[in-house]
Simulated scan of single mutants.
Amino acid sequence: MVKPLGTHNYFVYILTNKNKTVLYTGVTNDLRNRLYQHANPEKKTSFTSKYNCFYLIYWERFPVVSEAIQREREIKGWRREKKVKLINDHNPKWKFLNDEI
Score class of each variant (00 low, 15 high):
G6F: 13
Y58R: 04
G26Q: 02
D99R: 08
F54Q: 12
I14Y: 08
N19F: 15
E74A: 05
V27R: 02
H38D: 03
L15E: 10
I57S: 01
Q37F: 04
V22N: 13
Y24R: 11
Y55L: 14
L97A: 01
G6D: 14
Y58I: 08
K93G: 09
F11T: 10
N40W: 00
N40T: 07
I75V: 00
G26M: 03
Y10K: 04
C53E: 11
K82R: 06
I101P: 09
W78D: 06
N9S: 15
T45I: 10
N98H: 06
R61T: 06
Y51I: 01
N9Y: 11
W59Q: 12
E42F: 11
K18W: 12
E60R: 06
A68W: 04
A68K: 04
K93N: 11
M1E: 02
N52S: 15
L31F: 05
Y10V: 09
Y36W: 03
C53M: 11
L23E: 10
Y13N: 10
S66L: 11
L97P: 14
G26V: 02
L15V: 08
N52H: 14
D30N: 07
N29W: 03
N9D: 13
Y10H: 13
V22Y: 15
R80L: 06
N9T: 12
I87N: 08
A68F: 03
I69C: 09
N98M: 10
Y51C: 01
E81W: 03
E100C: 01
I101K: 11
N17D: 15
L56F: 00
D99P: 00
N91R: 09
P41K: 07
L15R: 02
E72L: 00
H38Q: 04
P41E: 01
W59I: 06
N19C: 15
T45R: 09
R79Q: 06
M1G: 04
I87M: 09
E100M: 05
E67S: 12
L97K: 12
A39M: 05
N91C: 12
L56V: 08
R73G: 02
Y10P: 13
K85F: 03
F54H: 14
K50V: 14
I14C: 01
T45F: 06
Y13E: 10
R73N: 00
E81Y: 05
P4K: 10
E42L: 13
E100G: 10
L23F: 12
R80T: 11
N98V: 10
I87L: 09
K20C: 15
K18N: 15
L5G: 14
E100D: 11
V12P: 01
H8R: 09
F47E: 06
I69E: 08
V27F: 01
H38T: 04
N40E: 05
